[in-house]
Design a protein around this nucleic acid. Structure first.
Lengths: 142, 142
DNA sequence: CATAATGTAACTACAATTGTTACATTATGT
DNA sequence: ACATAATGTAACAATTGTAGTTACATTATG
């Protein structure tokens, strides 16, 4: 279990919702993602809170996209569902009595921040619409 | 436990070794990193295998840096001690009977690859010597 | 030959993620 | 009204990766 797949699943879910006009039940989404409906509902709770989607209760309820796909930025989505920081510092604070231990975490922190920023810039350049376009292209290369 | 701290610890360890002329025992390193010597030895096993360091057995044994700090690239180090891929795809393959499920992983895979590359470009631009320079600067800003 | 070190196996502890069951709540539509 | 179908969410199990710990065989020094 290297890390979370919530971001990947979220993109998948939103792409699916974008193709449906009516509320989609979590069980249907789970069928496409190949997981349990509760797993989907947990992710939908995050997406609802962030305003990307809207769920309705009751029979014929389900979830709809709350924003146009072109306004859903993948970085915003990433931040809504993932813990920040792809590179991790020490678990326990290094020994402050050692010159290296005293300073290494702030130095590494600066480097890790730059790396994170570079990574985020890539996904910030993409929206859900870009993903939908690629999905369309994959289905009709004829 | 978002991810591994092996990369951070590895930079710490190599920085420490760079400041010592003689073989450094794992117990000493562990004192600076604030962890157990076996944890250090496990990481040293990876660093030895990758050729960054060299350990010697027996009394007055320990580990020394095997390369000049300016020739230790942080990306090479990262690859020696960490699992690749900061963004993760679905745990289980999506449903291939669904148009979205069938194509989403290859599309996401392309995006994740770009993100990874951008992140790696940042750490590739740095060597252990750069870290040592920052350590020196942090200790003598007088 | 006592000492000090690595290498490594084995086990524990811990935390994050995901899967699963269960059920209260809410809305629909006949 | 009421059967039905959906969400929301709690609780728990399963799996995995990381790190901490103990133990000990092996190796080299002086």
């Amino acid at each position: 279990m290297n890390s979370s797949s919530r971001f990947a699943v979220s993109v998948h879910v939103l792409a699916l919702l974008a193709l449906e006009a009516r509320p989609v039940p979590s069980a249907y989404i789970a069928g496409s993602v190949n997981t349990n409906p509760v797993v989907i509902r947990r992710i939908l709770a995050l997406l609802n809170k962030a305003g990307f989607t809207h769920s309705t209760l009751g029979a014929s309820g389900g979830t709809t996209l709350a924003l146009p796909a072109s306004r859903i930025n993948l970085l915003d989505l990433y931040r809504a569902v993932e813990e920040p920081g792809v590179l991790s510092l020490h678990r326990n604070s290094p020994n402050p009595a050692c010159p290296v231990g005293r300073n290494i975490t702030s130095i590494l922190g600066g480097i890790f921040e730059q790396a994170q920023l570079a990574m985020e810039n890539v996904i910030e350049a993409m929206t859900l619409q870009d993903v939908l376009d690629q999905l369309n292209a994959a289905q009709s290369p004829h």
